[in-house]
Design a binder for these strands. Structure first.
Length: 107
DNA sequence: ATTATGACAGGGC
DNA sequence: TGCCCTGCCATAA
């Protein structure tokens, strides 16, 4: 369902710059919602604007591509990140801390 | 209404 | 980047 919180979450995700990644927790903290809610908002089943949202730039707090299985095929998320210059190894974003984009600090 | 589940986070060990 | 448990909240059955 497209609730207000979902809209806010998708809005923030769309602001993530190419070549950068963010986390569920950072977005959740910025919007004052629970990290779980962020995960649900990005779920393709409840996200009508899936094609407009760079959900591949959102990973969990450890920099792991925890949602790669939701892109249709597991390799898609990793490919998209590499195309933007983000190194991915064994499902983990390399230099995660450097590439982290936190809306609380960036906005 | 109640229970179970999930693209999570944080703290303890 | 372990593992286990708790808190969190939307959604499905």
């Amino acid at each position: 369902m497209a609730t207000n919180q979902h809209q806010k979450i998708l809005e923030i995700v769309r602001l993530i710059p190419p070549g950068r990644v963010s986390t569920y927790g950072a977005i959740a903290n910025f919007l004052a919602v629970s990290p779980r809610t962020v995960g649900w908002a990005l779920n393709r089943s409840y996200n009508p604007d899936a094609e407009k949202v760079p959900a591949h730039r959102v990973v969990n707090r450890k920099g792991m591509l925890s949602g790669k299985m939701h892109f249709g095929d597991p390799y898609i998320m990793e490919e998209l990140l590499r195309e933007e210059g983000i190194e991915v190894e064994e499902d983990f974003v390399q230099d995660f801390k450097k590439r982290l984009w936190d809306p609380v600090e960036e906005l």
